[in-house]
Write a protein that binds this DNA or RNA. Structure first.
Lengths: 345, 345
DNA sequence: ATTAGCACTCATTTACCTCGAGTGCTAATG
DNA sequence: CATTAGCACTCGAGGTAAATGAGTGCTAAT
């Protein structure tokens, strides 16, 4: 990487980017000659800009237009921001997260707050329970041939499922089954429930192995369902605020990605797999793992609820995103989520 | 209503609408003179069209353009369709609804199928449990000061909530509470749980009235949450397929409505409150209870899961919607949902 | 009652022009 | 030698005018 950018070039580049973030218009030399502290004439600036263009930090959308930061330019800018470690953590106003005891409600809320706070589109993934453990499990009889399985995971994530059983189950046997499940499964992570354990359980269930098999199928099912991560989105239509994203085709693609969520899931996976600067990740244009976002910037943060339960918060907007604000906001939210976990743990 | 439309005028009107549905362009007299069976010259057609325009079934977007059906015109057309009772019920291909035992999964799926089948935007509301009864209720201890309440309603709708209690609860007392709740609440509709009943319960709970109060608060809370109906949407971005809806402003509004869901909820309420033609309701333009849809047509159907549990399926598209297909599809889906309920009880 | 014919309308498209912001280059300046 | 002033040049945006053509209403002929 070209470490060798003169101070003045850096200042000018910064100025170009800042100005472009605000206006969304290409910025010309004359504008800059006033905007910057260094009292330089437009001509001088022009020379510097020519250099910066040659270095590919900026480019002209067409001859005789001002300059626009390139992806590489944004990247430099963002990297500089990331180095300023002490983000001043401006308090998130109106965050209003109530302790509901139910994580998903909080997350839904978080996505909303984030969207209204930043004016970009946002996504929050429910925690992936990789390594999360079972805290409580219970079967209850609802009708003769119908029982409901309730599983509470760490972080108070609740899953339930109705099971149709082949033959009626006596109260006594139900009790036994519950005992069995609880003593065997509680405290285990999902990964720890392997075939061996399952076989052992079935064995111990004796003549009710049919039922236990059903139950375990259900547990597997629940995990399965959880495989495609739950993702909450908000503020999707914010993208209409940025002309460069709101032409018919782009808007269609992006909004579709937000509705289908499949692509967002890929973002989540990518974010979680690469641990980086304070848990904050910035994808500019092509850097994002999904082609749909090629004209966007995506800023993601990882949050942890302890027990290795991790999730992702993401903000999707135009490349001329207010990176500073966004990153601060994300940091704050990260902390808020942490607090909630402390209380709820 | 002008019953007195000559047969020929009707044929022409129908032709205009059909053609406009396909092309989205104003249709002129020359086009029609070929399109229709009646071998009439464009001039004759023009005369008839002039009449139809005077009767306000069609209009010109501007002088020297072809004609477009007015809302009134669409209305006549739709009414004719509704009279042809025996919708031929073309089987919904790929419906693939598996019995999951969990209503909301099915509904989510239904919205998707519907969207891909029709190429319009769709919404499905979870059943409003007006009159729905509690089928099963249980408290279980998760930790010392934490219990989980599980409530199963008719139609296997499951609600749960974590409760933090002030003081620990012995197993024995928990059992008592469960007995109490079950004997008192099961079979009751939500409306039936009034203040009198609550007072009685607290009384019977004796020195655990604090807990029962918490629990009932939670129940109330659950009902509360259910007050803003759950709504599943799909195919939102289908609206980009129709130029007349995909200009920046319209698209923004409509997609926003789909994201916020508040407005969709109003649609649901309106549909459920007015029972009409085979449970199918058509709103053309201004007829819809939400202003956002003023340039759309909305077709809704009511489904019933028995026990008075009703929900709404809706399709939102351009006015030049393929009403025939949409209505048939909705009818089919209605029946499918019925079948599922039969199996699931 | 139907139709052919014609004059008329008007949105849309195309071509063309002007305007101005912005550039690169060169020569002058401190 | 870095900086600046000056100037010719480029090119997109915006405006106007003309050409195009789909469609109409009206009238007169069939």
């Amino acid at each position: 990487m070209a470490v060798s950018l003169s101070d003045r070039k850096l200042v000018i580049l910064k100025a170009i980017i800042k100005n472009y973030l605000e206006t969304g218009e290409p910025v010309g030399s004359r504008t800059l000659s006033k905007y910057t502290e260094l009292n330089l004439s437009s001509a001088t600036i022009r020379n510097e800009m020519a250099d910066l263009e040659e270095l590919e930090f900026i480019f002209q959308p067409h001859t005789s237009a001002g300059r626009i930061p390139s992806d590489k330019g944004y990247r430099l800018y963002v990297d500089m921001l990331l180095q300023e470690k002490e983000a001043e953590l401006t308090a998130l106003k109106n965050i209003m997260i109530e302790k509901t005891g139910q994580v998903d409600q909080v997350l839904k809320q978080a996505a909303k707050v984030l969207a209204s706070n930043t004016n970009y589109a946002t996504m929050v993934s429910a925690p992936v329970n990789k390594g999360n453990t079972i805290k409580f499990i219970q079967l209850s009889q609802v009708e003769d041939l119908q029982i409901v399985a309730v599983i509470v995971m760490g972080g108070n994530i609740i899953k339930n499922k109705i099971l149709d059983i082949g033959e009626p189950l006596s109260n006594e046997n139900l009790l036994k089954l519950n005992m069995l499940l609880n003593t065997s499964l509680i405290g285990l992570s999902i990964e720890a429930i392997n075939l061996g354990l399952i076989a052992r359980l079935k064995d111990q269930a004796g003549n009710h192995s049919k039922v236990i098999s059903d139950v375990l199928d259900a547990v597997a099912d629940i995990i399965q369902v959880d495989d495609d991560v739950e993702i909450y989105t908000s503020g999707t239509t914010n993208i209409f605020k940025y002309p460069e994203l709101s032409d018919k085709e782009s808007a269609h693609e992006i909004i579709n990605a937000f509705e289908e969520k499949q692509q967002l899931a890929e973002l989540v996976v990518d974010t979680l797999s690469s641990e980086d600067n304070h848990g904050i990740q910035v994808y500019i244009g092509d850097e994002a793992p999904v082609k749909t976002m090629k004209d966007c910037s995506v800023v993601t943060a990882t949050y942890e609820l302890g027990d290795g339960m991790k999730g992702t918060i993401g903000i999707i907007g135009p490349k001329r995103m207010d990176y500073e604000h966004v990153m601060n906001t994300l940091k704050t939210l990260q902390q808020k989520l942490d607090e909630i976990y402390q209380k709820d743990g």
